[in-house]
Simulated assay, not measured.
Amino acid sequence: MSEIINALDRALDVMILLYHEKREMGVTEISKELGVYKSTIHRTLYTLENKGFVNQNKENGKYWLGTKLYAIGMVVGEKFSIKELVKPYTKELNKEFNEVVNVSILEEKSDDCPRSIVIHKESGSNQLQSVNPTVGSSCECYCSAVGKCLMAYNDINYNRFKNIEITKYTETTIDNWDEMNKVLEKIRENGYAIDNEELEHGLTCIGAPILDKNNKAIAAISLSGPTARMKSGDFDYKIKRVIETAKKISDLLH
């Protein structure tokens, strides 16, 4: 088992503190927040500044994150997309329940009814119903768990969709926007959505939003399977695990 390098651990704590505070901080303040001697913080900041990871404002003596972190972040951002970010978590959820896990984003369209598009999929060995969206496919948001999450946690004016006819795929499909607004409010209260055979008979999905630091859904994750399996005795536990998984991914974006 490897041992923590204290000096490195302390330097990372300093950068994480500055990141979370989102403002310049002085040596005394950083020392107090981290519970570390001022002399130690001073040496840590000097080392970080020497490598470009923090910069000192010469006018007030306070420190802020440096351009080296920005450069690294740009490279990571290009390489580490949301699809790469979610993979370990979708694999874990798929392995636990052996059901399909999808990650979807809001499709960028201004005139049509809001739609979600699948950007990542993890499949189990259990066979699903015929409607099993592939990566790149899209679906109206109102009839899917991920879609409803994306609508609930994004600034969308739904009044402009009221004249658009809603296709009622099954008897449980929500077919008017007034009812949908009530459902979206409940989703925001509970932190998850259910597709109760609203797109296909016999298919149930649980969805939860993946939120950025502004509490906006940049994506949503779902666990899907035949209703008989999904609504077995552990349905509430499945909901809990989907919410937990979405939160873990969201925490990485904050």
Rank of each mutant, 00 (worst) to 15 (best):
S2C: 11
I5Y: 14
I5L: 15
N6P: 02
D9S: 15
A11R: 09
L12F: 12
I16W: 09
L18A: 09
Y19G: 09
Y19H: 13
E21H: 11
E24N: 10
T28C: 11
I30H: 09
L34T: 14
Y37H: 12
Y37V: 15
K38E: 14
K38C: 13
S39A: 15
T40C: 08
R43A: 08
L48V: 11
K51T: 02
V54S: 04
N55D: 09
N57M: 03
E59D: 10
G66E: 03
L69T: 11
Y70T: 11
G73I: 09
M74W: 13
E78F: 13
E78S: 08
I82M: 14
E84I: 06
V86E: 02
V86M: 04
K87M: 05
P88R: 00
K91I: 10
L93T: 03
L93Y: 06
N94E: 06
K95C: 07
E96S: 06
E99Q: 07
N102F: 04
V103Q: 01
I105E: 00
R115F: 13
I117F: 12
H120N: 02
E122K: 00
G124N: 06
L128E: 05
C139Q: 07
C139A: 10
C141M: 07
Y142N: 09
C143V: 08
L150G: 04
L150V: 07
Y153L: 12
N154H: 08
N154V: 13
N154W: 13
I156K: 06
Y158E: 12
I166N: 05
Y169R: 03
T172M: 07
D175K: 01
N176K: 04
E179C: 11
N181V: 09
N181K: 03
K182Y: 02
I187M: 03
R188Y: 08
R188W: 09
N190C: 09
G191W: 05
I194K: 00
I194L: 12
D195K: 00
N196H: 08
N196V: 01
E197C: 07
E197A: 08
E198R: 00
T204D: 03
I206Q: 04
A208C: 06
A208F: 05
D212S: 12
K213S: 15
A217V: 14
I218Q: 01
A220P: 01
T227D: 01
K231E: 13
G233Q: 09
D234C: 08
Y237W: 04
V242P: 02
L252I: 10
